[in-house]
Amino acid sequence: MERLLEIKNLRTSFFTHVGEVQAVRGVSFHLDKGEAIGIVGESGSGKSITMMSVMRLLADNGKIVEGEILFEGRDLAKLPENEMQKVRGNEIGMIFQDPMTSLNPVLTVGDQLMEPLIKHKKMSKEEAFNRAVHMLELVGIPSPKSRMSQYPHEFSGGMRQRVMIAMALACEPKLLIADEPTTALDVTIQAQILELMKDLKQKINTSIILITHDLGVVADLCSRINVMYGGLIAETGTTRDIFYNPKHPYTWGLLNSVPNPKNLVKERLKPIDGQPPDLLKPPAGCPFAPRCQYAMRICMTQRPPLFEIGEGHKAACWLNHKDAPKVEAPIRRGDL
């Protein structure tokens, strides 16, 4: 399969008045054409910053310190801003967490949808209008023509996220980055939006990177998963590997916090105690060690490398070292 995106040793920091916050501390992964992968982690894990680095949409004080972001062979990290503008919205589309605030309240939905088409595809107003109506139809918005002249506040949350998806996909980008696209939505709407993304992935033939804190959301859509913690990749593997053979205690914790409908009465969800590390002074060892109930002496002092578990399955945890005590993964087996 052909590589679409390859990130090599990406480091991104924010330079604040109290010092350098190392949000992403050396992350590498890749994405093939037509593939959908998930990046999973809690807030502050660096998952969103990684993807904002790809889009080069970091806040003014944020900077890519090191690493390469190869998109079809071009290094986006070094692309000048005006070249980058031709990539955004055209070759890479992005949707965000909160559809309620992600659309401009004073511009019509149609205007906002037509903007990227006119800019990137050099369409006339009329062509762009027709294409925008078509996109609205595609994302399942009823009577799309009359909806074009309405303002965002006249749409429900789910509908707005559909508009965001239509806007991100309007130029048929090769890659769609979805940053927590369902988090702010009702559960029933969540399922619809995920279904829609799955459907459009086929129709438009786009690759997807889905960022989420919820392992339950990625299972259906993504073939591979990167689990991130403390600005690093904690574990990476196929969806099967992550769900059925996880090798990192943080992944165990995440799996145990996914509600399992069959076990609702019998078991309680187990939250992971404690808080993520302060990336202003990142810990020398494993960032998860202070919260890890299996933490060993080495975890406190030395950062674990990515241990090879199987083909394409790696975990950054000292428990996978040959000298480490054997630990049985404490996860609920069954019907995930």
Partner: peptide, 23 residues
């Protein structure tokens, strides 16, 4: 994986030594 990894480093750290809320 470097040189001076010794077996004793794989001892479990007791909960009492960890401070969950250091930050």
């Amino acid at each position: 994986i470097n040189m001076d990894i010794t077996k004793d480093m794989f001892e479990r750290v007791p909960e009492s030594e960890k401070d969950l809320n250091t930050i």
